[in-house]
Design a protein around this nucleic acid. Structure first.
Lengths: 204, 204
DNA sequence: ACCATAAGTTGCACAGTGTGCAAAGTTGCA
DNA sequence: TGCAACTTTGCACACTGTGCAACTTATGGT
């Protein structure tokens, strides 16, 4: 009954989507965010203005694609962890694995573009927030009621904040390009601090 | 040389600002966010559209005022903690004290309005982000170089995520009004979990 | 008290945003 | 081939956000 969209249509849509996202990223890199309008992106991607808005709700939105694929990667990795593994171990492994995503340096560029441009920053934050909601649901399923709501919300929020901190540190330390291994280190470090309750080893 | 703005001018500006913010909150509560335009807020607050935009950069922006005062409270409380107190204790105390802010229920309403309205949510997230930056600076000063950048970023991010989780839980559990004591409990609970590294006491 | 001036408000113009709608163009399947 | 479903596009329209110039009001010196 439900018409499973057959290959071609879907593929075309994905292509268009990717084309628009790429165009947006190119323009943002060259002209620097804030000087980029929806019309320009549409033109660069060779679609009409209207079509652009069929795919994305704003210019900044078109730039969340890399971030979203990064976060989706995390969600999938987490879902794939064995269910008898301790929760925090599973989470750490899942997030560490995100460093393997292909378009990692796009994400770095995005982080750099985002500070200095509140509009872009807030759409990026929104993307993280949506991912947080998905992960919360995944953790709820995994724990199946054996933890309070507050515990799950606080845990997932903190974990993602650590990942964000790691990305920020990584992207600002490597203004040009960064290695996946470096990022993975930062992520594991930040999450280890979290697991230790941020007990300071360095100070009195 | 520099004309110190004397009483009246400043007071008028603050009054106008407050009037606009109030108008915005009223409209959002009644007509439900998303149906509220800058023009309506301006009219309600009895200023011109143009003046509205002199004070706020968007309709949603006018709603961050309560959130911002909430977070400012946290920053001030933190700055006031004795500097020999352990860092996490100081932070917990500072955030617990935010439950004493006057317009607490406005913040709750805002949280409820924000989910279901991405635009509003993303401006709220931006407000938290700005607060995070301020707190990071305060912590850097307090620690004076005895901790890595990553440590501070991850810690402050996590702490604020816990506070956010507490607010979310509190505001969704009390759709009408919530008590300050309840919120304080949630905040302390969430931060205690953080301090324990989210070791689950409930499960194997 | 009075006026020059700095500060705040307002209307207007203009480029850009985001969305509903209907006309055109594609694609998939019998 | 031809029709049904889907996608793209142009157009219209209300709203956003900002520069600019005219106007109004508070402040401080004389």
């Amino acid at each position: 009954m439900i018409e499973q969209p057959t290959g071609r249509r879907e593929q075309n849509k994905l292509d268009t989507r990717r084309a628009i996202a790429e165009a947006a990223l190119n323009l943002a890199r060259t002209h620097g965010m804030g000087a980029v309008t929806a019309d320009q992106i549409a033109e660069e991607a060779k679609v009409s203005r209207r079509t652009f808005f069929n795919y994305f709700h704003s210019a900044e939105d078109a730039l969340t694609v890399s971030t979203e694929s990064f976060l989706e990667h995390a969600v999938n990795e987490f879902a794939a962890r064995p269910s008898d593994e301790p929760l925090l171990d599973a989470i750490i492994a899942a997030l560490a694995a995100t460093a393997q995503v292909e378009n990692l340096n796009d994400c770095g560029d995005l982080f750099r573009l985002a500070d200095g441009n509140p509009d872009l920053l807030s759409t990026q934050l929104l993307a993280w927030e949506r991912a947080e909601a998905r992960i919360v649901r995944a953790v709820e399923e995994r724990l199946g009621g054996s933890a309070t709501n507050l515990y799950i919300l606080a845990l997932v929020g903190s974990v993602l904040s650590c990942a964000k901190a790691a990305m920020r540190e990584w992207s600002s330390a490597n203004p040009v390009q960064g290695s996946a291994a470096d990022l993975e280190n930062h992520i594991v470090n930040a999450l280890s601090m979290l697991r230790d309750g941020f007990a300071q080893s360095t100070t009195t």
